[in-house]
Design a protein around this nucleic acid. Structure first.
Length: 436
RNA sequence: GUGAGUGUAGCUCAAGGGCAGAGCACUGGACUGUGGCUCCAGGGGUUGGGGGUUCGAAACCCCUCACUCACCCCA
């Protein structure tokens, strides 16, 4: 009758102790970006829907079928953000954070929303950390950005990672390639799957991504964008490749790498891993030299990437490099053995918290055995109990549940109690270290 | 949006038309204020939901929902 309400499909609760680990991944990823000189921007979770149709492209799958759009009470159409680059560019333009005269390095993190069928490594609400470099860029900026993701692969020990690299050309050279590609596909129309036959007319570049086995022989011999690049794009691509070699970052040229967002130009890349399921990309991005101008901002190049945190979780779990859950949530459980000890227990809990010790009182009529069990369940390191004898002598029994040692300490000497607890949990920390 | 597989106790799983079970976890006791080990006892379920077939359904059929994986798409 009273059905419990469940989380929406494709939306996951991250519960203890995983939440601390998840935030650890977020933090460690952001620390790498901070080392790269990026500054954080906090962006809204929803935007005008038109921001995304203008940037990502109205005929992409993301906008066409996956976006959570809604009208607010004023009748305006908004959308939960399906990605971060559009929002960040919007904010950069709005607040004049970037222009062609100087380089800006900005990053964001948080949940993104796409209405997709959930699958391994694919959720409807998922977390991304992304970074963008805006301004007067050179191919070296593309390489620098890739080097930062490479740093993640190394530091997190991402298993079986591969960097796929391509250059999609620019508005000058892409039309010629499109003509050549469509011409070729028309010649082999009968050999293509129905989806490819349809896409040939709507979005021929996407045909290159087809995974139907029967299409593969045709696609293998299809014209490659890299053979149609104009001189500038050709030079751009060559520079990126040379500088990746200088940094000794291995990559695989992937002339068929097409990204699903229309704003990409020139350099595009994907970091994949064989250790993930079908959703093998864990970080991806590229150049988007026309985006800022398209959004009404300065005519200014940009290059960026986004990484999927849930996918990083899966990979780091496989690599056994998941961050720890940190210190136990509760360091000491204070248990009054008799009702008359409750006021003193309450006071001790409060005093310990003021001394910086995570403490809880266990106010129950259960027996002491239940207190031990509760403390174990909470991973509480200490059990402090106050019974009739302790009320009489104004002391507390402080027991280290790991070492089994127990001492009697004067109840009023909160600092001594706090010191003993801190010493056991933070053996590294020196007593009264000057700071704070 | 399409397809396949799976839904039984908090968790992992049995029972394949005839009494809904085990292990772990949980609660109590042995052990009045000292946990983990051991032993004993106990609580827990409309077998995801709804309908149908049948004397009888967890099992067979239909619908539906959820989960998982894949297609697709992407981080």
């Amino acid at each position: 009758m009273n059905q419990p309400i469940r989380a929406p499909r494709g939306v996951k609760d991250i519960i203890p102790p995983d939440a601390m680990r998840f935030e650890g991944i977020l933090r460690e990823t952001e620390e790498i970006l901070l080392l790269g000189g990026f500054q954080k921007v906090l962006l809204p979770l929803f935007e005008s829907a038109s921001l995304f149709t203008r940037s990502i492209g109205g005929e992409t799958d993301i906008v066409e079928k996956e976006m959570y759009t809604f009208q607010d009470k004023g009748g305006e159409t908004f959308a939960l953000r399906p990605e971060g680059t559009a929002s960040l560019l919007r904010a950069a333009i709005e607040h004049r954070l970037a222009d062609i005269s100087r380089v800006s390095r900005l990053f964001y993190s948080g949940p993104m929303f796409r209405h997709e069928r959930p699958q391994a490594g694919r959720l409807r609400q998922f977390y991304q950390v992304g970074a963008e470099i805006l301004g007067p860029l050179t191919p070296s900026d593309d390489v620098d950005l890739i080097a930062i993701i490479h740093r993640m692969a190394v530091q997190f020990r991402i298993p079986e990672w591969t960097l796929l690299l391509n250059n999609m050309g620019c508005p000058r050279c892409r039309p010629a390639y499109r003509t050549a590609l469509v011409g070729y596909l028309k010649d082999h129309f009968g050999e293509l799957c129905p989806t490819c036959q349809r896409r040939m007319g709507t979005n021929p570049f996407r045909v290159l991504d087809c995974k139907v086995p029967a299409c593969q022989p045709v696609l293998e011999k299809a014209p490659r964008i890299t053979d149609y690049l104009c001189d500038r794009s050709r030079a751009h691509y060559d520079r990126v490749r040379e500088e990746l070699d200088v940094l000794e970052i291995p990559y695989r040229p992937e002339p068929r790498l097409v990204r699903g967002l229309d704003y990409y130009t020139e350099t595009t890349f994907e970091f994949t891993s064989g250790a993930l399921g079908a959703q093998s990309t864990w970080a991806a991005g590229g150049r988007y030299d026309g985006l800022s101008k398209d959004l009404g901002g300065p005519d200014m190049p940009g290059v960026g990437f986004a990484a999927g945190i849930e996918r990083l979780w899966l990979l780091r779990e496989a690599a056994r490099t998941l961050p720890g859950a940190g210190l136990p949530p509760i360091w000491v459980t204070v248990f009054p053995l008799a009702p008359l000890a409750r006021p003193k227990a309450l006071r001790l809990v409060t005093a310990l918290r003021e001394a910086g010790i995570p403490a809880v009182g266990l106010f129950t009529d259960q027996k002491i055995k239940a207190a031990f069990r509760q403390a174990e369940h909470d991973r509480s390191r200490f059990l402090a109990f106050i019974g009739e004898d302790e009320v009489e002598s104004d002391t507390v029994q402080l027991k280290d549940l790991v070492k089994g040692e127990q001492v009697s300490v004067p109840l009023g000497d909160t600092l001594e109690i706090a010191r003993r607890i801190r010493m056991s949990l933070l053996p590294e920390e020196k007593e009264h270290s000057g700071s704070v």
